[in-house]
Design a protein around this nucleic acid. Structure first.
Length: 557
RNA sequence: UGCCCGAUAGUGUAAUGGAAGCACAUGUGACUUUGACUCAUAGGGUCCAGGUUCGAACCCUGGUCGGGCAACCA
C-alpha cells in the first residue's frame, strides 16, 4: 500500500508527507516508525492519551509501526507497578504495540559504548565539580558561561575516569560525564550538559549491574536511533533539547530520527502534571490514582468514560504548537455522544419520595418489558416490575409548577409513569416542616403502556421504581475536581485549595431491580438523570454506581 | 534584560497567496413516552502597525502579548 500522499491531519503529518516524498525522490526506503516512551514512574493521564493517539495513530496512518518504550533511566523514580498500569491503559485506549515493547535499560551497554566513543573524540569529559560549582560555570541565560576545570583533560584520562565511574570507584554525586559542547551557547542545554551520573540504585530491570545511569538527553536520542524511529514526537518543553538531541547523534554518526514537538493537552477544571496529581494522591485529597475525579486514564475508566470518547477528543484537539486549554465540555460532549449511542437505559430514583396508587390492587405486581434503548431495538428489552407503591424523584413533585416546562406531579396533574400508566396526583402528605412524605394518586387502568385510548396528551413522563422491588444502591456523584477553570492560574495560591468540595457527593438511591446484576464497569443511562457505571467495588449485595456525567442541560425548575 | 516557540469566534481547530469554515459552548424554535437524542436557526473571529502583491490569516519588517529554557528528573 502506498504510504505517501496521505491527507494531512496536522503539521506533523505535513512534515512526514514531505519527508516521505523526499525519500521517495531520493530512491530511499519510505517508512514511518514512531514510539511512545513513558517513564514508568506514574500513571498515564489524558494528556498522555493525546501523545498515544498521535504516536500510534500516525504509525497506523502510514502503515508503519509504533514502539512502546519504557524510558527507565532513573531507577529511583521507577516501579514495576507503573509498567503494568501503563500497558493496561494503552490497551484500554485501543492501541497495540504488537511485539514492539522495548526498554531503555536494554540499551545500557550500547549507551556506554557510545559514551566511550564521544570521550575518544574529545566530545565528552568527566567533570568533578559539584552541582553547585557547575551551576556557577554554566552561568545565566543572559551571560555566557565559563569553562570548568578539567574540561581539556586528555581522552585517555577521561576514559580511565569514566571506567572508574562505571566500576563504582567514586561516590554518588562526586562526578558526572559531560558533553563537551559550548559553555557560551545561548541555549543552556548546550553548555556541557551531563550525560551520565553516578547513582547506586537497584534497577528494576538491570538490578545492580550499573551504578551509573544515562541522563534523558543522552539516552533518548540513542534509544530512538537504535530502534530506527523516523519521527520522534514529544511535547513542547523539549524544543530546546532538540539541538542536543541532534548534536549527540551527529557526533556518534548514527541514524538520526527527527524530533517534532507539539503542545500538551490541557483541560479546564483539572491539572495535568504527574507531580501535582501525585500530590493529590499522597495528601489523600483523592482516593488514589484511579479516583474517578482524576484525569488519569484509570480514573476516567472507573468514572465510566469510554476509550472511544477519549480518542475522539484527541482527534478533535489535534496537534499544534499552540499552548492551549481545551474546555472540559468538549470531552464531556465526546463522552455523552458515545454513551448515548451505547448505553442501555434504566430507571433509578436518586432522591426518592413515595407514591401510593390508591386504585391499584395492593397485591398485584405487573411487569413491563421496556426497551433498553429508545432508538436501538437491537439492544433488546428488560423486565421491570410495577406495583401499588412506587418511588419517584423528589424533583417530580411540586405544589405549584413554576413554568410550563415542568414535567412532574402537582395536585390534580396527570403525568405518565414511563412505560407503565398515566396517573393523576390526588393528594400529598407532608411532615410538620412541610417536607413531602408521600403522594397519593390514581391511575388510569386503560392507559397500560403509557398511552390513553382517548388519545389525550400529558405534559410529562417521569421515571419510577417499584418500592417493594427497589434495590438500594450507593451513588457516587462525581463532578469537576476544581472550582477554577485553570487551578494553576494564580501562581501565588496553592492549587490544592481550589479543590471542589462537591466533586464527590455520596447518596443512596432506589434502582430498578435488574441493576443489581450489573458487573463492575457496566455503563447505563439512568433516564432523565445521567450516565452511570457500576463501580469497581460494586457487588449484587452492595450495589455502587458512579455518576459519569449528568445528561446535558441541567434542569431549570 | 539572552535564546527558543507561539498568536484565527468564549474554547479547540481548518483554510499552506484566491469566497475565513468546522466542532464544542451559548441563544431561539421544532420534535419527543428521557427537560436526553435528533433537526432547524442565530450571534460571534484572523493581536497591532507598516510593507510586498491584482489579491495576505498565510510572505517581509517592526512592535505587543503569552509560553518554555539555567536537575547529577523525564
Amino acid at each position: 500500500m502506498k504510504i505517501i500522499n496521505k491527507p494531512s491531519d496536522n503539521f506533523i503529518h505535513d512534515i512526514i508527507n514531505a519527508d516521505l516524498a523526499a525519500d521517495l525522490a531520493a530512491g530511499k526506503r519510505t517508512e514511518v516508525v514512531t514510539r511512545f516512551p513513558p517513564e514508568p514512574n506514574g500513571y498515564l493521564h489524558i494528556g498522555h492519551a493525546k501523545a498515544i493517539c498521535l504516536d500510534f495513530g500516525t504509525a497506523e496512518k502510514y502503515n508503519g509501526r509504533c514502539h512502546l518504550r519504557f524510558d527507565d533511566t532513573n531507577p529511583e523514580a521507577e516501579d514495576e507497578e507503573y509498567v503494568q498500569a501503563i500497558q493496561k491503559d494503552i490497551k484500554w485506549l485501543g492501541f497495540d504495540w504488537g511485539d514492539h515493547v522495548y526498554w531503555a535499560s536494554n540499551y545500557f551497554d550500547t549507551m556506554y559504548e557510545y559514551a566511550v566513543r564521544l570521550i575518544k573524540k574529545g566530545k565528552a569529559y568527566v567533570c568533578e565539580l559539584t552541582q553547585e560549582e557547575f551551576k556557577n560555570h554554566r552561568g545565566v541565560p543572559t551571560e555566557p558561561g565559563t569553562e570548568p576545570p578539567g574540561r581539556d583533560r586528555s581522552a585517555e584520562e577521561n576514559l580511565e575516569l569514566f571506567e572508574k565511574m562505571k566500576d563504582g570507584e567514586f561516590e554518588d554525586g562526586s562526578c558526572v560525564l559531560r558533553a563537551r559542547i559550548d559553555m557560551t551557547s545561548p541555549n543552556l542545554h548546550m553548555r556541557d550538559p551531563a550525560l551520565y551520573r553516578i547513582k547506586r540504585a537497584t534497577h528494576h530491570n538491570t538490578g545492580d549491574k550499573w551504578c551509573i545511569y544515562p541522563m534523558y538527553d543522552f539516552a533518548h536520542c540513542i534509544e530512538d536511533s537504535i530502534e530506527g524511529v523516523t519521527h520522534s514526537m514529544c511535547t513542547l518543553e523539549f524544543e530546546v533539547h532538540r539541538p542536543l538531541y541532534d548534536w549527540i547523534l551527529q557526533e556518534l554518526d548514527v541514524f538520526q530520527p527527527q524530533q517534532i514537538e507539539f503542545s500538551r493537552l490541557n483541560l479546564t477544571y483539572t491539572v495535568m502534571s504527574k507531580r501535582k496529581l501525585l500530590e493529590l494522591v499522597n495528601e489523600k485529597l483523592v482516593n488514589g490514582w484511579d479516583d474517578p475525579r482524576m484525569p488519569t486514564l484509570c480514573g476516567m475508566r472507573r468514572r465510566g468514560f469510554t476509550p472511544e470518547a477519549i480518542r475522539k477528543l484527541c482527534g478533535i484537539v489535534g496537534a499544534t504548537k499552540v499552548e492551549s486549554i481545551s474546555e472540559v465540555e468538549l470531552l464531556e460532549s465526546c463522552v455523552r455522544d458515545d454513551l448515548n449511542e451505547t448505553s442501555p437505559r434504566a430507571m433509578a430514583v436518586i432522591d426518592p419520595i413515595k407514591v401510593i396508587i390508591e386504585n391499584y390492587p395492593a397485591d398485584l405486581v405487573e411487569t413491563f418489558d421496556l426497551p433498553n434503548h429508545p432508538k436501538k431495538e437491537e439492544l433488546g428489552t428488560r423486565t421491570v416490575p410495577f406495583s401499588r407503591e412506587l418511588w419517584i424523584d423528589a424533583m417530580d413533585y411540586t405544589d405549584v409548577p413554576l413554568n410550563n416546562k415542568y414535567k412532574g406531579f402537582a395536585p390534580g396533574r396527570e403525568v405518565r409513569l414511563r412505560g407503565a400508566y398515566l396517573a393523576t396526583c390526588a393528594a400529598v402528605e407532608k411532615d410538620s416542616d412541610g417536607n413531602v412524605i408521600s403522594i397519593t394518586c390514581t391511575y388510569d387502568p386503560d392507559s397500560k403502556g403509557g398511552s390513553a385510548p382517548d388519545g389525550r396528551k400529558v405534559k410529562g413522563t417521569i421515571h419510577w421504581v417499584s418500592a417493594q422491588h427497589a434495590v438500594d444502591a450507593e451513588i457516587r456523584n462525581y463532578d469537576r475536581l476544581f472550582t477554577e477553570e485553570n487551578p494553576l492560574a494564580n501562581k501565588e495560591a496553592d492549587f490544592k485549595d481550589l479543590i471542589n468540595p462537591d466533586a464527590l457527593q455520596i447518596t443512596t438511591a432506589k434502582l430498578e431491580p435488574g441493576l443489581a446484576q450489573a458487573k463492575p464497569g457496566d455503563r447505563y443511562q439512568f433516564e432523565r438523570v445521567g450516565y452511570f457505571c457500576a463501580d469497581l467495588d460494586h457487588t449484587e449485595a452492595a450495589p455502587i454506581f458512579n455518576r459519569t456525567l449528568t445528561l446535558r442541560a441541567p434542569r431549570k425548575v
